[in-house]
Design a protein around this nucleic acid. Structure first.
Lengths: 128, 128
DNA sequence: TTCAAAAACAATAATTATTACTGATATTAG
DNA sequence: CTAATATCAGTAATAATTATTGTTTTTGAA
């Protein structure tokens, strides 16, 4: 049940995210999708973003300020600027390795490991 | 400037956090501090929590749901339950090592590295 | 020990981010 | 084609946080 019907609005949201690498907020998605669907509502954007996250087609990034969304669901890492809130991908010489990182005395289930960085982005350094 | 005067309310907030290891939210702090200062306002709690974070005396944890606060400012790692939102500390056999983890093509300043985990906590597993 | 400048306060209003509700519309399986 | 229902737009409601305002504390210097 909950048979997930096709929707043009959802497609448009996903297509937009695929074309972007700056991890847009719900508002940014809304602003864009509105060009194609002038009557779309912000609630629809939020609902579809949650839906797409739940089925794993996009990734929700919880950082400071509003949530952000990323169509790249491969493991990768983010830098968040404490100053302007922008989020960018980080690339490494060698991928971080968490294979030896096993928690002690923990009886829950770990589903995801998040490594992320924050500080001041290049643009904000120049501003100051 | 901004000479940070002493305040009994701020002390109480900090003392409360020091005695806890469950990373309380602003509301939880408010509920407790109210016992000692029945007229304290939630705004005061928020203001002091930000202040204490800014000067590095506590750490603000941005996760899903409301922000949480931690008096332990030493490097350590958190597990967040996707189900109930609780946050707990994780202990490791060997501390994660980020020494080899250097970003390429990045011109900002990295101030903090966050490694955190999420999934389902023991209590939520039992519930289901 | 006053006393005034400024930080901090309580109370409350406002803002921001997100979720829930409702009746109309679009999609899809039979 | 049609009925069932997921999705929609529009809007109201909630949750989390920040800002404003006039009053009270704190503190350093007179």
């Amino acid at each position: 049940m909950a048979a997930l019907k096709h929707s043009r609005q959802r497609d448009c949201i996903k297509e937009f995210l695929i074309g972007r690498h700056d991890h847009p907020t719900a508002d940014m998605v809304y602003a864009h999708v509105r060009e194609e669907f002038p009557h779309i509502s912000l609630g629809t954007v939020y609902r579809n973003l949650s839906l797409l996250s739940e089925i794993g087609e996009i990734r929700k990034i919880t950082c400071n300020g509003p949530d952000r969304f990323d169509a790249n669901t491969m493991p990768h890492y983010h830098f968040t600027c404490n100053c302007c809130g922008s989020v960018e991908d980080l690339e490494f010489e060698q991928a971080p390795d968490f294979s030896g990182v096993l928690p002690m005395n923990f009886s829950g289930i770990i589903e995801q490991i998040n490594l992320d960085f924050n500080g001041t982005c290049e643009a904000c350094i120049k501003k100051s």
